[in-house]
Computed example of a mutant assay.
Amino acid sequence: MNFEWLGRQSGHIIDLVGWHVVLSVAPLVVGLIIALPIGWVAHRSRRLHPYVVGTAGLFYTVPSLALFVMMPLILGTKILDPMNVIVSLTIYTVALLVRVVADALDAVPPETVLAATAMGYRPYQTLLLVQLPIGVPVISAGLRVAVVSNVSLASLAALLGIPQVGTLFTQGFQLRFYTPIITGIVLCLLLALVLDLLVVLGNRLLTPWTPKVVAS
Rank of each mutant, 00 (worst) to 15 (best):
S155H: 04
V194T: 11
T179S: 13
L6W: 06
G39Y: 08
L189Y: 08
L143F: 15
V53Y: 00
D81M: 08
L201H: 09
V94I: 15
N150D: 10
A146Y: 02
L189S: 09
I13L: 04
W5C: 01
L28G: 01
V17R: 05
P211Y: 02
L23I: 07
V200D: 10
Y124S: 14
A215H: 12
L16F: 10
L128R: 11
V165C: 00
I91Y: 07
N84F: 04
F59H: 11
L206A: 10
L198C: 14
A192D: 07
V94S: 02
V136L: 02
A26V: 15
I185N: 04
G54E: 06
V136S: 01
R44C: 13
S45L: 10
L32P: 01
L16A: 08
P110A: 13
L189V: 15
V25C: 12
L193K: 02
V136P: 05
L190D: 08
L28R: 00
V138D: 03
V200Q: 11
M83Q: 13
V22R: 12
D15R: 13
I79F: 04
I74H: 00
I185R: 06
L36Q: 02
H20R: 01
L75T: 08
L16H: 09
R176N: 14
S88P: 07
L23P: 01
F59L: 15
V41H: 08
L201T: 09
V85K: 05
M1C: 06
M70L: 14
V214A: 08
T183F: 03
Y121P: 06
L193V: 08
G166D: 07
I34P: 01
V85T: 09
L198P: 00
D196Q: 10
A116P: 07
V100P: 05
A42R: 00
P110Q: 14
W5R: 05
E111F: 13
H20D: 01
I34C: 12
V52E: 06
Q164I: 00
D106Q: 15
R46G: 15
T117Y: 01
Q171C: 00
Q9C: 01
Q131D: 06
I33G: 06
D106E: 15
N150Y: 03
G172Y: 03
P180L: 00
L129D: 12
W209C: 07
V200M: 06
V25D: 10
F59W: 13
Y60M: 14
Q164T: 01
T210P: 01
